[in-house]
């Protein structure tokens, strides 16, 4: 019953946070920070699937985030709000509260399909070459959005706040926070289950020795497809949430700068470590927030952190280990390595 404890602990945390937000015990600023932490957890754990567990080097995670953000936002503005671009709402605004998860997932599906742009080339190429492809995909996505005038082009897209508000009208809850917490839980669960199953460990086999994996009956192309699509799909969901937390998105947000931020989280936490990614997403979001007064200098300090990290602890805080390997007592609460036999 060990794993029940970690799930119920997380549930308890969610209830507490939602209650705190509802009761105005934590102000809007703190709520936003919590939501950004959640979004960053989804981004870093999903990127870790590729860069850590599968050992490829993807530097275009923000591109998939952008796809999800735009698909979800456009659908929500189109369906549930009256806007200058799409006119009156297609559905009643009150249905937003039920259909929001659907549009969120559709954003994820869209991002997963764009993930094919990386997954298919990965059959033939890997390492540095694939990294350049991911970079290219990031730029393709950003430039495409900049050139679609119907959704605002480079000026950006807004109106998502209305959807969040209409959800709030039907049911008075901090909906953005609720969905961030649900999706963080779902993401960690999915990745945890995946990398602890014999099926999912196939991607670790691909990292260790791809030829041996293929000859020992692992369908390497399929595993790459699954890993890339799962990772980019989750990034898309994170993007959809991001858009609804901010209420405004523009293509300039989803550049290599954003991808780098996620990369730093993955490498800070440690490759192939789920708990490491979660911890570093929390830590780095807080650090970046503390450095906000530094403004542009923030982008000197953060890369500097990366240089120091690579010099003194290249494997990250928890490289290929989980928190419970470092502190075995934590096994009482959760067990990243499933008990074998």
């Amino acid at each position: 019953m060990r794993r029940f404890t970690s799930v119920s602990l997380y549930g308890l945390l969610c209830v507490l946070l939602i209650a705190a937000a509802q009761g105005q015990w934590i102000d809007a600023y703190v709520q936003i920070i919590i939501m950004f932490i959640g979004i960053n957890i989804i981004l870093s754990t999903s990127l870790n699937l590729i860069n850590g567990y599968m050992g490829e080097f993807s530097v275009g995670h923000a591109g998939f985030m952008a796809v999800g953000a735009y698909i979800t936002s456009v659908l929500n503005v189109w369906f549930f709000t009256s806007s200058k671009v799409f006119g009156p709402p297609l559905l009643t605004p009150s249905s937003a509260v039920y259909l929001f998860p659907v549009t969120l997932l559709l954003g994820g599906v869209g991002a997963a399909l764009v993930g094919l742009l990386v997954a298919v080339p990965s059959f033939r190429t890997r390492g540095d070459y694939l990294a350049i492809i991911t970079l290219a995909v990031n730029y393709i996505v950003k430039s495409s959005i900049e050139n679609i005038q119907a959704i605002g082009g480079a000026r950006g897209f807004m109106g998502m706040q209305n959807t969040v508000n209409s959800m709030k009208e039907s049911w008075n809850l901090p909906w953005a926070l609720v969905w961030v917490l649900v999706m963080v839980g779902a993401t960690i669960w999915t990745i945890y289950r995946f990398v602890n199953s014999t099926y999912g460990k196939g991607i670790i086999a691909v990292r260790d020795d791809e030829i041996a994996a293929e000859i020992m009956s692992v369908d390497t192309q399929r595993m790459k497809l699954v890993a890339f699509m799962l990772s980019s799909g989750l990034a898309g969901i994170a993007g959809g949430l991001f858009a609804h937390v901010l209420g405004y998105i523009n293509p300039g947000t989803f550049t290599i700068m954003k991808s780098t931020e996620v990369l730093v989280m993955v490498y800070l936490g440690g490759m192939g470590s789920l708990s490491g990614s979660v911890l570093s997403a929390i830590a780095l979001t807080l650090v970046l927030e503390l450095f906000r007064p530094l403004q542009v200098a923030k982008w000197v300090v953060v890369p500097l952190l990366l240089i120091l990290l690579m010099l003194f602890r290249p494997e990250g805080f928890l490289g290929h280990r989980e928190l419970s390997d470092v502190f075995p007592r934590l096994r009482r609460w959760f067990s990243p390595q499933e008990r074998q036999s």
Partner: peptide
């Protein structure tokens, strides 16, 4: 050509990949 970052036990499990007969959603 063993998979060195996986345990001996996992090495013997993953090699049966072809006969697993389940997919991503089954694991989740």
């Amino acid at each position: 050509r063993l998979w060195n970052s996986l345990t001996v036990f996992d090495n013997l499990c993953i090699s049966q990949h072809y006969h697993l007969g389940y997919g991503l959603w089954d694991t989740v």
